[in-house]
Design a protein around this nucleic acid. Structure first.
Lengths: 290, 290
DNA sequence: TTGCTCCTCACGTCACGTGAGGTGGC
DNA sequence: TTGCTCCTCACGTCACGTGAGGTGGC
């Protein structure tokens, strides 16, 4: 039974998709016309393609990229289809949260003066830590950090190591400059006596710790010490750049910045209960005046 | 007093804007470095540029285009600045509403079968109407329609003409195909006897009606009649394409579509109280079987 | 001197929109 | 035959990201 065929113009009027969009969807294989005249190139659409076209229109209205739409349309079953869609809705939700944070952050920025960060200089000792290091982008950092925290918490239990300080993270300079670099999240531990090793030994024996799964990404690592100018950021994570700005200004004015990753510590722990405080540590070379 | 100068890398770390973004903002004149070395091209930023940079970051997080950000930064006073920002927030709000409509529309589309539109064939007579015709895009239509309805309501009062039927709109085919065309919104009226004129006369004397402001866009116009297949859409405006699809399918199957604009009538009036019903009228050439 | 930072093109991305220039079908 | 619909390039949009290839500064 041949279904009624429609010209691209008729099909456009019926679906409220522009002719240009329909041709594009053909080009990228998202909505192939039922027939294409081999001589003239004229496209013909079937009446049964109206519903798929309407689905496409709504997914585009949701801001879903064409690649994801293709995945939805070609999903082998309802579960896979729903996964694609809910994944996208979650992405949108995260974006909405970011937008809301930007609104309130902007209000704060325009109404309040720049926070004159209270800055202290601190000597941070080297420690042994359970750590995960991976190349991530700024955009992916929050989601990645959540996973890593779960892994580190699991590793603490598995190894029985005692926590020796707050969770922290190392950000190489180019993480902010390129929006992508190898970030380390760590939790300092007191190694049990039988696993206590020199820093060198630790680096050499990465992963060779009882309780750490061999294939996992958590490693027992040496986190180097540093001298740093430290400011506490008390507020939403999205506004941490204000503290970076205030801290960087002071360092540029009054101290000698040195190489080495910027680090953050989370002294309140990291839970879902409101924004935790963040200690931002900017490596410096201390002079007598500090 | 010279403010501390920072390299682009330092400035990037302090503001969490990527180096590439900073160079781009320089290129398009949104954030000019305090100094540029004429020999090496090296950019230097002042510590006092950190706050503007943070504002830019938040406006970008709000999805504000760079042109609007430039307008915000160069606004002569707080009122102008706030106007730019609230304008953008309103655009975002409208987009959010559309997204929500898409979510519920998608749910309906995936769960319920295509509405088997109840279709009737109707002969629509020519009428005289107060009307506004203007080239608009699909994206702008809703906002534009709201304005026009206010104008038409005002014109009804001003002229004292009696309403002779529900509000309606004419959409040429290429409105959907190109997403932009001349749309007409109208309200049929019974001309007072002294202004009653033949259709031809009406066309010739556009605007020459007592009470209509000469410079306004409302005109007394003849709306031609037509024969049409009609389906009623009962639901959100964003889902009207479902009725278009069902109606177009029936027309393609069972009748002879003819030229002429698609029209919509709004028999419940157009208020803020929930989605009004929409009669969608598709021009056809009737045959004996209908 | 090495290695790091910074520089400038030139091109890619994404989902189409905007013409230009031409042809098919009633 | 006219005029409308449809066709295919080729290029533009927007806010940068991604290299390539090269230079400055400590």
């Amino acid at each position: 039974m041949a279904t009624t065929l429609l010209t691209i113009g008729e099909f456009s009027r019926m679906t409220h998709l522009s002719v240009k969009a329909l041709r594009h969807y053909h080009d990228v294989g998202i909505l192939e016309p039922a027939e294409v005249d081999p001589h003239s190139g004229y496209r013909s659409y079937g009446a049964d393609q109206v519903t798929p076209a309407q689905v496409i229109r709504r997914l585009r209205d949701l801001g879903m990229p064409l690649d994801s739409i293709r995945a939805v349309l070609r999903a082998p079953d309802l579960a896979a289809r729903n996964r694609e869609i809910t994944d996208h809705l979650e992405r949108m939700e995260r974006q909405l949260e970011q937008t809301q944070a930007a609104v309130s952050g902007l209000r704060a920025l325009l109404s309040a003066p720049a926070p004159r960060a209270r800055i202290e200089f601190r000597t941070i000792p080297a420690v042994t830590a359970l750590a995960v290091a991976q190349v991530v982008t700024v955009a992916d950092f929050a989601a990645w950090a959540t996973e890593v925290l779960a892994d580190l918490t699991g590793a603490l239990t598995a190894t029985g190591l005692a926590v020796a300080g707050p969770f922290g993270a190392l950000f190489p300079g180019d993480f902010f400059e390129l929006e992508r670099s190898e970030v380390t999240i760590f939790v300092p531990v007191t190694p049990a006596s039988e696993t206590r090793v020199s820093e060198t030994r630790v680096s050499e024996t990465r992963g060779g710790v009882a309780g750490l799964p061999a294939g996992g990404r958590v490693r027992l690592t040496a986190i180097p010490g540093t001298e740093a100018a430290v400011a506490v950021h008390d507020g939403p994570a999205d506004d941490v750049d204000r503290t970076y700005g205030a801290l960087g200004t002071v360092v540029a004015d009054r101290a000698i910045g040195v190489d080495g990753p910027i680090r953050e510590y989370y002294p309140d722990g990291i839970g879902e209960a409101g924004p935790p405080r963040t200690e931002v540590c900017w490596p410096v070379f201390r002079t007598a005046g500090d």
